[in-house]
Amino acid sequence: MSGRTRPIDKLATAAAKCSKEGAVYGKCIVADYNNVYKDKCATEFMKLKDCYLAAYKKR
C-alpha cells in the first residue's frame, strides 16, 4: 500500500516468531478436528498469544 507498514504485516511477522507455540496449538486442534468446541485449546492458545504479544511489542 503506502510507505507505512500495514497492521496485518506486523501481525504476520510477529506470528511467524512463535512457530513453536503455534505448532503446539495447531496440534491440539488438529488432534481431534471433528470435535472442536469453544476454548478447547485455551491454555495452548494463551501461551501462543503471550508469545505473539511479546513479539509484537518488540518491534
Binding site: A23, G26, I29
Partner: peptide
C-alpha cells in the same frame, strides 16, 4: 486477531 492467529497455525498444522 485471535482468530487470525489461531487459523494461521491450524492451516500450517493441518
Amino acid at each position: 486477531r485471535d482468530v487470525l492467529l489461531a487459523a494461521e497455525n491450524i492451516y500450517r498444522e493441518l
